[in-house]
Computed example of a mutant assay.
Amino acid sequence: MKVRHLVLTSAFAGVERHVAVLANEQARMGHTVEVLGGDPAAMRLRLHRGVKRSAASGLPATALRFVLASPVDLVHAHMTAAEAAALPTRALRGTPVVATRHFAAPRGSGMKGRLVRSLLGPRVDAQISISCYVAGAIDGASTVVYPGVEAVATQDVARRPVVLVVQRLQPEKRTDIALRAFAAGAPEGWCLEVVGQGPELAGLQRAAADLGIAERTTFLGFRDDVAQLMRSSAVLIAPCDIEGLGLSVLEAMAQGLPVLASDAGAHPETVGRATEAQLFRPGAVAEAGAMLARLCEDADLRARYGEQLQTVQRTTFTPRAQAEGTEAVYQEVLG
């Protein structure tokens, strides 16, 4: 099968990482796969040699490029702009379009959003949602196919007394909850490391000072060694209550890193599968702080819980399961 993935961005964040993992696994399964879009340097590093890659242009240029490009069996679009760019190829060539929905919301908002929905909805052949949470919030029917991450060997891992946060510093991510939970529950001698960039940085730095944890808190900005940081940290906090899935959470689970997460969004579908899942009510700082204190003080709980999360990742959230679930949707579309 020839598959062309389209993500109309020049970035490399959660959506682009999702595309790279899926494309690599599809290539391993013997398909001919192309990825158009994403940060060129990052995609070059993360896509296997068997996956053809190219940079994305603007929507009109990409739409024309698709019409003129060599035919494929199916276009897999990620996010609304990519769906729109794929539609002329569908109209002129009949190439099916499958769209993955990454966010728990209908397409767009306001008058422009309603126009986009009216144009795209009837013309997308199938939709994939990355979680049940997303499926319940989007417009139209979809099939849930969970993203996957690679398994990681974690024998003889030495963990520091560090609580880690890995996410964009945007208001909806609720990084402030992580800071307040750390201030409420982390014992002396423990540190907080925050990986990510965004407009909330200055406000979060002030919050750390106000909470009296500035000397124990480090804002690391963008890092390309997140896997190593997860491997050496003791707890990850995932405070966002509207998370569509959370690849960083899956990556932490693969590392056997205990995750303290809000009991909202898709976290009950990931972290919540562990026997001793550590989930706090959204915004409940005191509850989160108490749970964090217990995790910090109980090394046996951290080890046991980390193993549970790793088992969940290895049995449910794998690249092969993602690719097979995606292919089932493709086959249904192709007949």
Rank of each mutant, 00 (worst) to 15 (best):
F12N: 10
P319V: 03
V134G: 03
V157E: 10
Q310D: 02
R304L: 04
L64N: 13
E287Q: 14
I128H: 01
S232D: 08
V124G: 11
R168F: 03
L279F: 05
V19P: 08
Q313Y: 01
A181R: 06
S118A: 11
P96Y: 03
A99R: 07
V19D: 07
R174C: 06
F103K: 14
T95F: 01
E269T: 14
I237V: 13
E276V: 11
T316D: 02
V67Q: 03
L247A: 01
T80L: 12
V3E: 09
K52W: 13
R180G: 05
K52V: 14
C240N: 13
G244L: 05
Q205W: 07
S232I: 11
E200C: 10
A153F: 05
E276F: 00
R159T: 08
V67Y: 04
A91L: 13
A286F: 05
L59G: 04
E307K: 12
R160S: 05
I213Q: 00
Q308V: 07
L229E: 01
G58K: 09
V15G: 00
A137R: 13
L22F: 04
R160I: 01
A126T: 15
V163R: 02
A69H: 08
M1A: 10
A321L: 09
M43W: 03
L295P: 02
A323W: 04
A151M: 10
A264S: 05
L301Q: 00
L92Q: 08
G121P: 05
L179V: 03
E16I: 05
V33A: 12
L59A: 04
G272H: 08
H48Q: 15
N24C: 01
L179K: 02
V149C: 01
A183N: 09
R53I: 14
G136A: 06
M111Y: 09
E276T: 15
H102A: 01
A126V: 14
G30A: 12
L204E: 04
A209L: 11
V134E: 01
L295K: 02
G256R: 01
L47Q: 03
A252W: 00
L204W: 00
Q308C: 03
S70Y: 02
V165N: 05
A293L: 07
H48I: 15
A202D: 12
R53E: 10
E287T: 15
D39V: 13
Q278F: 00
R114T: 14
Y330G: 07
G108I: 03
E251M: 07
P258E: 00
L45S: 15
G203A: 07
R49E: 15
R114W: 12
T154V: 07
R273M: 04
V33H: 12
S262N: 04
Q313N: 10
L115N: 09
R28P: 11
L92I: 14
L115I: 15
I237E: 04
T95K: 02
G246C: 03
L119P: 04
G189D: 02
A227Y: 05
A135C: 02
F219A: 08
